[in-house]
Amino acid sequence: MPPRIRLWPRVICLRTTPAKPPPTLHCSYASMATVITTPAPPLGQAIRSASPVLRYPPTQPPSYKPPEVRKTQLHRQYQSLLKSSPLILLFQHNNLLAVEWMSIRRELASALAKTDAERQAAGSEDIFGSQIKIQIIQTGIFASALRVVEFFPPSEDPLNHAQNSSNLKSQSSLKIPSTTAKPEDARFTHGLSRHAHEVASNKKLKLELDPLLSGPLAIIAFPTVSPQHLKTVLSILSPSPDFPAPRRKANPDYHEPSVQSGLQKLMLLGVRVEGKVFDQEGAKWVGGIEGGIDGLRAQLVAVLQGVGAGVTNTLESASRNLYFTVEGRRMDMERKEKGEEEEEK
């Protein structure tokens, strides 16, 4: 009878557990596979540099503040308004009711439509009365936008530092700026860039309009400097002896209590005309220019014509004097010669 061997399951278990994990075969296979299957880069890519790629949408260069918030969009909107409108009227509005705003806007629109009709009858082509509107602004954002417009002139073309990708033998000849997609890039020249923000936030630069930019403000922006439209707006919104308000008979709507009580709360503070700031008197002066820019041109032409005649007279006089002198001298000498000849005879 063979001896009985006792098997202890615990001992077996201990012995069979391996001291170190077996090498994983999958890893090595995978790495070998990548080494083998990755193709070599094409020869062109190794010789030439990669063609430039625009890293942001061309209409949305990266902005310093988050672009999706209302503040940023207002800032951008005010910048474009300030750049595109040479004549801006600044008003302070003191707690106007919605009804009053509505009726003032209605009166303004109807008066401007009347002015436009007059201009059309006179044969003028500048009809933009419908674009002139009173608009409430966020004062702080408007002040900041004005600083950017005044102190951050985009001096260089944004494409100056651009690489022309046509040199690089790529498909398109489109110029692509080499700015990176980060707002810190100092080469950005749009008004929302970080560079613009830093230039405009310099406290040493003072705006002429700074004292006006506080409290509740509303503006009226004109697409061109048009004294006739300005005259209409002034006569509606801040009537004075020079710019009388429409009579009750001519325009009964204007004398409604809602319009009149609204106008009492609206104050004209100042005007910005082509970068210069004027007060109320200045606004009246601009509004009082007869015939607008054409009238001024006619005056200038008249002045220059007068000057031209004067200049030709002055310039001619020198040569004329010389001619008379020389001629006089010639006559004199001829007379003397004749006298000598007669003496000789």
Partner: peptide, 19 residues
């Protein structure tokens, strides 16, 4: 005088008057 920086409180006073 609206162009004087010291007149800010005058303008703000006007804006505090109810409609």
């Amino acid at each position: 005088n609206p162009f004087s920086p010291r007149s800010k409180s005058a303008r703000l006073f006007l804006s505090l008057i109810p409609p």
